[in-house]
Nucleic acid binder design. Structure first.
Lengths: 106, 106
DNA sequence: ATACTTACTTACGAAAAGTAACTAAAGTAA
DNA sequence: TTACTTTAGTTACTTTTCGTAAGTAAGTAT
């Protein structure tokens, strides 16, 4: 019996953020559009999972993917308007982490 | 090779929130101290995982546990100052979910 | 003694994550 | 022509985490 008293929209939002790596991928893309391998090395996720997460974020309309047929091929991922709208939340998390996470915690 | 360029404090904060259920448990406790079974039924988590998550949140100093030896026994979970400090973040997530999650998404 | 309540814990199959090696496409170098 | 490089993934396989359901412990109440 799942007698949820929570707002379904809030629950959905939380389910996106509480999937491992998605938060960090979004945070990373807040610094600008970037390619697969850049995200991969900057947050330390494996290609297998990054591929999966980017697909999901595209499905959610948070990330968009653009192909530039250069040499070698360049594929850039960036945030949509919906994704960019998460910036205030990320700022709050930055603030909280600075205020409350001690260096021992890491 | 994990060449993290992220702030370790931010990474740690994100790792707490991106563990399934922890965000919802914290959110639920923002409405006041409550017992195990109340949290369990209001967010739809199983006892097994709630037990685990509360223990972790206690270890992180986000949640505190108090025992009232009444009949039947009452054990109340509540947010510490560190946990309460997540309220602004939760408000941002509420805002974002209202603005950007459509009813189809749920 | 038996049942009832709360707050868990245990056991176990299913799903997700982590690691590493492999593939595809397109150009470049020898 | 053949081999090599780069980017962007995918596949195969092991380990960890999750979800469900049943069981336990302490303290009444009947």
């Amino acid at each position: 019996m799942n007698t949820s008293q929570l707002c379904p929209k809030f629950e959905k939002a939380m389910s996106i953020l509480s999937k491992r790596w998605t938060g960090l991928v979004i945070y990373q893309l807040l610094s600008g559009p970037q390619r697969f391998c850049t995200i991969e090395s900057s947050i330390g996720i494996s290609g297998r999972l990054l591929s999966d997460r980017l697909k999901h974020l595209e499905d959610e309309g948070i990330v968009k993917r653009e192909v530039y047929p250069e040499t070698p091929i360049r594929i850039e991922y960036s945030l949509t308007e919906k994704g960019l709208a998460l910036q205030p939340l990320m700022k709050e998390l930055e603030k909280w982490s600075q205020d409350w996470i001690t260096s021992k915690d890491t």
